[in-house]
Structures are given as C-alpha cells and as structure tokens.
C-alpha cells in the first residue's frame, strides 16, 4: 500500500517536473534569452550558459525534493573548476545531461541538431551557443575551436542515450576531437539505478522505486595514457574509441563506491 502511494506520487511528480521543465525552457527561450540578447555584451553565450546551469540546478533540486530521484555526485569540484579538458560521459538517462550542466557553469556541449527546432529548447541551445552534431567534419573543427577558448566541452561519445542491457558503444567523433585538440580527457561515469527516462521510454514509464543517479568524476587522463600515439587519424580514432569503451565499461562494472 505504502509502496503504491509512493509510486503514484512519483508518477504525478514526474509529470509535474516535465511540465515545469517545458514551461521553464519556454520562458528562457522566448523571454529571458531574447532580453539578454539585447542588453548584453559579447559574453552573452557565457552568461546564457551560467543561467542554464543555475536553472538546471533548481530543476534538480525540485526533482529531488519531490522524490522523483536522488542525486549523488562524487568529485563535483573537479567538474566545477575544470578548464581545457574534454569531458566525456556515458549517457544512460535524460537527467544526466541536466545534472552535468548544472555542475559545469561554463561548459559547452555537443547537442543533437533536432533541439534547434524543438519548441521548448530552441532558444536555450542557441543562446548558449552549444555545438550541433549536424555536419561531422564541421563538428570536429567547431569542437576543437571551442576547446581553445579554455572552457570545458561536454560530449556523450555514445552520440545518444545508452541502450539498457547492451554493451557500451561509442561513436568515433569524441576520439577525433580529443586527438585533434590535444587536451586531456575528464571521464565522468554515470549510473542510474533503476534505469529511468532511457532512450525511447515514455515519461510515465517510471521505475518501481526511486531512481538513484550516481555521478562519479574520475581524474583526468591523457590520450597517451590510453593508447600509443603516431597512427594516421582514422586509425588513431578507432584505437582511442576502443580504449575509451574499454575504460568506461570496466569502470562502470564496479559498484561506484571505490572513489574518490
């Protein structure tokens, strides 16, 4: 009975959170960012990112206060102060990207092109000057240019959310970017138990118990620690992608309590 009440409460709260997120994103897109666009200086993307980070932080607080999920972060300060790094994370759920951006007030992020036309998110991704994944060649160049500014760049190498129960499969774009920009990698392991808001899942398919999102920020690794250098680009990207897949799979197979 008690478990039942909890389930229906979380169902209602999850719906409420989606509603709040949609309204919030719409207000940012249609009101806040257009105003900032008019009054603000050349640093408007940086300010927009800061605003998004704070708003996402409030949203996470709401999700936790209403009991939709519980968030635990190991090594948050490594994210907050990072510069000149490529932040790579696995992507099991919709919530992880919100949590990561709330932890990184100045990060850039590679975002799927569809969000530029999303009725809620269009103004957010534009104002923040996030990088679209549309053209592969341009993507690698855009990302390398973005990293040169010193701000961290967040990429989900899977290119989309993970498929539950299937082995981790990384696309090679992140490896190309790491190889061409010559900055270290900051790996972030994300575990969501039980899985929720996975790829293709409807918002109302909530798990039977509260989801626990555990974010574990590892120490930076250099590309040279993961593989031997000197291969031509396409082959190096393949080797680095395999090495990263292996690293993430091995680290994720532990229970996450080994750190810090």
């Amino acid at each position: 009975m008690k478990a039942n009440i909890n389930y229906y409460w979380r169902l209602v709260a999850t719906g409420g959170c989606f509603l709040v997120f949609g309204i919030g994103a719409l207000i940012l897109s249609a009101v806040v960012f257009p105003i900032m666009q008019i009054i603000s200086s050349p640093k408007k993307a940086t300010r927009a990112r800061w605003v998004i980070s704070k708003v996402f932080g409030i949203f996470l607080w709401l999700m936790q206060t209403t009991g939709v999920m519980r968030l635990e972060v190991i090594g948050a300060d490594k994210l907050r102060n990072c510069r000149n790094v490529l932040v790579l994370a696995n992507h099991p759920t919709l919530i992880d990207v919100i949590a990561l951006i709330s932890l990184m007030p100045n990060a850039s992020c590679v975002v799927k092109r569809a969000l530029w036309r999303n009725p809620f998110m269009w103004g957010v991704v534009r104002a923040a000057n996030y990088i679209s994944n549309l053209e592969p060649e341009a993507l690698v160049q855009d990302c390398a240019a973005d990293i040169k500014t010193g701000q961290p760049l967040l990429i989900f190498p899977e290119g989309t959310r993970s498929v539950p129960g299937r082995a981790l499969k990384f696309r090679r774009g992140a490896a190309y970017i790491a190889l061409s920009s010559d900055v270290p990698i900051l790996p972030v392991l994300i575990r969501c138990d039980p899985p929720t808001l996975t790829k293709g899942a409807k918002w109302y398919k909530i798990p039977n118990k509260q989801a626990h999102l555990l974010i574990e920020v590892k120490d930076v690794v250099n590309v040279s620690q993961l593989m031997a250098l000197g291969d031509p680009p396409a082959i190096a990207a393949r080797k680095l992608t395999l090495a990263l897949e292996k690293y993430f799979s091995q680290e994720l197979s532990t229970n996450g309590k080994s750190a810090p």
Partner: peptide
C-alpha cells in the same frame, strides 16, 4: 565506417 570516414 562513419560519416567522418566517408569524408576521408
């Protein structure tokens, strides 16, 4: 192959 390889 991926789209970057196709460009290559």
């Amino acid at each position: 192959l991926d789209s970057i390889d196709a460009v290559d």
